[in-house]
Design a protein around this nucleic acid. Sequence first.
DNA 1: GTGCAGTATGCAATAAAATTGCATGGAGAT
DNA 2: ATCTCCATGCAATTTTATTGCATACTGCAC
Lengths: 150, 150
Amino acid sequence: MDRIDRKLLNLLQRDASGTNLDMAEAVGLSPSSCLRRVRRLRKTGIIDRIVAILNPARTGRVLKAIVTVELKLHGEQHMRRFLDLVTGEEAVSQAYAVTGETDVVLILHLRDMEEFDALCDRLFRDRTNVARFFTMMVIRTAKDETAIPL
Amino acid sequence: MDRIDRKLLNLLQRDASGTNLDMAEAVGLSPSSCLRRVRRLRKTGIIDRIVAILNPARTGRVLKAIVTVELKLHGEQHMRRFLDLVTGEEAVSQAYAVTGETDVVLILHLRDMEEFDALCDRLFRDRTNVARFFTMMVIRTAKDETAIPL
DNA sequence: GTGCAGTATGCAATAAAATTGCATGGAGAT
DNA sequence: ATCTCCATGCAATTTTATTGCATACTGCAC
């Protein structure tokens, strides 16, 4: 993990659509060396995957919401059951068990309020374990970064 | 935007490292047609970008935190100033202005608590506009998905 | 300093993939 | 039915990825 690896990772985190030739030139290596480094970074798991990031608004998911959830029962099995439940929902893009006043934080990508309503029914009102939940609708996304600084 | 485009987008959201030939076969098109579709999806902005997703733990950012922030002054210029401030911080991966009890929600990727401490100093205690903030440390990440369902 | 082992590098040949022009075929409009 | 527009597949061409191999480098023991 030297300077060149970091440079490669930074490039790939911003744009992984270029050719290996371009990248080799960008970091000052031959194409073969560059390729071998990238392969190593992938094999060792530092690079988890290479994916397309879609524009959420262009996919019809125009609403984002952040929801904090307080559970009634806090045992490990109850927590896991609830997390399994939310994880199965496609509108839930992130789900975290957290410290603090609440137990779980969700980030939702929604088509409309109707979808939110239906989701709340499934997650929070059914026979589940939810004491309270607070919804924060996202007004403005100031930053939404997939890259992790090195 | 037909069935094949959706199939392509789903594939690319999971793994954009394969060759165009593979994808063409996966969706049942010739390589040239497949390539033209993917280019169109990129050009029209449905595909925002193609990036490498790193394993956060492997990069040394082993802690995640979610922070809710209440501002003292809620005017547009104050909100914008605060959002500009947090956006400039590399540990802040997501920043949202939201409805509800709080004004801003941040998601942080941290190396250690020392970094968190320093960040709090810069964002919340300086001459800024913060009334209160609540920190939720992430205990477990149940879901962290870049793909948006179509 | 010297020698060694393990690793990274560049080069060049080869294999694979991307890209393009072009002719064909299909869907919808008139 | 005919026309237009756009997507498709094919095949030729260009570009890129991949591999073997010889060399250079790095860290380390002596």
